[in-house]
């Protein structure tokens, strides 16, 4: 079945009323697809059945949040982006006595582990804290384990090498029963916590904020809200990194941030 516009509205308002999550500022075309996928996966024949479960089963709702948000990610996604982080950004923030990095919308954590590996190779890991947040508690549970399917490691190793990685990528994990478990010393520098870009506030100041392929799911107003939240969390000369097709060109931040090079990384000027 396919949900009508008014049924989508009913789902949005029920979720807000019962749990306080506000999906009203999400890009509608994408959210419609997520809702229809949810109805299909759950074999629902009436939207009312879904609404009823959301109202009465908080555990089920946690899964719904994970399903409504897109959690497709990979390690060293867009290798050229990581190459720029490695060559241009880490040498700058590496001069600080202590480094704070925020992965906003970290999903299952693949990009957080990628960053930890970069930091390790720059001998910066021990003085860095990686804050990794997501709206979905479900994906954070996965992220904090640092265990990913082994079959993806070939692709990740290729991404790693294209990003300028010189080591044998397999030294960062132990392979077992089709899974790759990443080193505990990487996880030791990570702090995982639930955070909602729609409704929560800034909680610290960071040298670098990464929010990759999250804003594409927000409409312009909500994008500006999230960007303001990042702005509140960055000192002057702090860096903001977005997904490869995301841009701050037409946003509230455009005149105060300068793009570093070709990749989607900006420096806060004032």
């Amino acid at each position: 079945m396919t949900a009508t516009d008014s049924e989508i509205e009913a789902i949005i308002s029920t979720i807000f009323e019962y749990y306080g999550y506000d999906f009203s500022g999400y890009s509608r075309a994408s959210l419609n697809r997520r809702v229809n996928r949810l109805l299909e996966l759950g074999n629902y024949s009436h939207v009312e059945d879904l609404l009823s479960r959301i109202r009465h089963e908080p555990d089920y709702f946690e899964r719904v949040v994970g399903d409504l948000t897109v959690n497709v990610t990979e390690m060293f996604r867009d290798p050229q982006f990581y190459k720029q982080l490695r060559e241009k950004i880490l040498p700058i923030i590496g001069t600080k006595p202590f480094i704070r990095i925020w992965h906003a919308g970290c999903s299952t954590g693949e990009e957080v582990f990628s960053m930890a590996i970069l930091l390790d190779e720059h001998k910066l890991l021990e003085k860095t804290l990686l804050y990794a947040t997501d709206i979905s508690p479900d994906v954070l549970q996965t992220a904090k384990k640092g265990i990913f399917p082994l079959r993806q490691m070939k692709q990740y190793a290729e991404n790693y090498a294209s990003s300028g990685g010189k080591e044998d990528f397999s030294k960062y994990y132990m392979a077992n029963y089709g899974l790759a478990k990443f080193e505990d010393r990487l996880i030791a520098r990570m702090v995982f916590s639930q955070h909602n870009l729609v409704s929560d506030r800034s909680f610290n100041e960071f040298d670098l904020i990464l929010c990759r392929n999250v804003l594409i799911y927000f409409d312009k107003d909500l994008q500006n809200r999230a960007l303001t939240l990042f702005d509140d969390s960055l000192p002057n000369l702090g860096f903001l990194a977005l997904g490869s097709k995301e841009n701050i060109k037409f946003s509230v931040l455009s005149h105060r941030y300068q793009q570093v090079e070709r990749e989607k990384i900006w420096k806060k000027l004032r």
Binding site: A29, S30, V70, Y217, G243
Partner: peptide, 13 residues
């Protein structure tokens, strides 16, 4: 994807 606003949006699902 096509938005009701006339915008094009992207999705990595």
């Amino acid at each position: 994807l096509f938005e009701p606003t006339g915008e094009l949006s992207l999705d990595v699902s």
